[in-house]
Simulated assay, not measured.
Amino acid sequence: MKGPLFYAKILLFGEYGIIKDSKGLAIPFNSYKGALKSAQNLNGEAKKSNESLAKFYNYLANLNSTLVSFDLNELKKDIDNGMYFDSSIPQGYGVGSSGALVASIYDKYAQNKITVLENLTRDKLLALKQIFATMESFFHGKSSGLDPLNSYLSLPILINSKENIEATGIPSQKEGKGAVFLLDSEQVGETEPMVNIFMNKMKNEGFRKMISEEFAIHTDACIEDFLKGNVKSLFGNVKKLSKVVLANFKPMIPDAFHKVWENGLATNDYYLKLCGSGGGGYILGFAEDFDKAQQSLKDYKLEIVYRF
């Protein structure tokens, strides 16, 4: 048995903001992927994955939801027969490792599932997002459902607000000098503690004001520029966003990268922002001249996501 492939995702813009109803833009990232597989003798990562699936099964079996039902007998049988999720998606890196797993389980075991081949109306997209949020909250405590949705559809998704999401197109990549890239912090981040820090900060009126008056406005401007291919304007807005994130999201940026972040803003060689919830994993970088950014960041592992 080998299931279809489900890809990683990158939330280009909108981390944390989407929890509070501002815009977001997520794109599939095909360098990393996962699929359901089976083996008789499990060891190492496969064994761990199988044990995790058994816990996930218990969670789904006790889910009291009118949204979705599963062929639980089949799922239990497959897990007992050595099913695991074989994935190259790094965990705790902000690129949707649990999202791809959730998408694969829904795809194989959900009854009356909404398929990718249907006409995906806004209502169907919202229903899928809700189903995935319910499923993925097993892993994170609270989930927007966006990672699994992105992985399941393998399409860029534009979040206008909680109730308004759409599949979208992004400008095709060019062989230019500019790039969006991943910077490897070489630390694992955990989503739940980071989201808890954010929720506590949201109790502060000044922080809430900053989210709505600065963070959300710069994020929305970045998304608009990116979708329209306004590269010059995009970098101006990414710089503003990078400054706001550095000033207000310090706990989510690993300590060793505060200086690296500041250096990008000072030299304009690159601008950094959070990739997912932060706390470790990948940091997302934007550079008008990727060669320059590579020089500045020569001590770090970089990976290109998109070229301008």
Rank of each mutant, 00 (worst) to 15 (best):
S172I: 10
Q173K: 15
K174R: 12
E175K: 14
K177M: 09
A179Y: 05
F181C: 08
F181E: 10
L182P: 08
L182A: 06
L183T: 00
L183Y: 10
L183G: 03
D184M: 05
D184Y: 01
S185R: 03
E186L: 08
Q187N: 08
Q187L: 15
Q187D: 04
V188Y: 04
V188Q: 14
V188M: 09
G189L: 03
E190R: 10
E190L: 14
P193L: 02
M194R: 07
N196S: 09
N196F: 03
F198Q: 08
M199W: 07
M199I: 09
K201W: 04
M202R: 06
M202S: 07
K203E: 15
K203A: 13
F207L: 00
R208L: 13
K209C: 05
K209T: 14
K209E: 15
K209F: 10
M210A: 11
I211A: 08
E213H: 13
E214H: 11
F215Q: 05
A216P: 06
A216W: 03
A216D: 13
I217A: 12
H218Q: 14
T219F: 06
D220L: 07
D220H: 12
D220E: 15
A221M: 09
C222D: 08
C222L: 08
I223W: 04
D225N: 15
D225H: 06
L227C: 02
G229D: 12
N230H: 13
N230M: 05
N230G: 02
N230D: 15
V231A: 14
K232Q: 10
S233D: 14
S233P: 06
S233R: 14
L234C: 00
L234K: 06
L234S: 03
F235D: 07
F235K: 02
V238C: 04
V238A: 05
K239Y: 06
K239R: 13
K240A: 14
L241S: 06
V244K: 01
V244H: 01
V244Y: 04
V245M: 14
V245L: 09
V245T: 12
V245Q: 15
V245S: 03
L246T: 04
A247K: 11
A247V: 02
A247W: 03
N248D: 07
N248M: 05
F249Y: 05
F249S: 03
P251E: 08
M252P: 03
I253Y: 01
P254N: 02
D255F: 11
D255P: 09
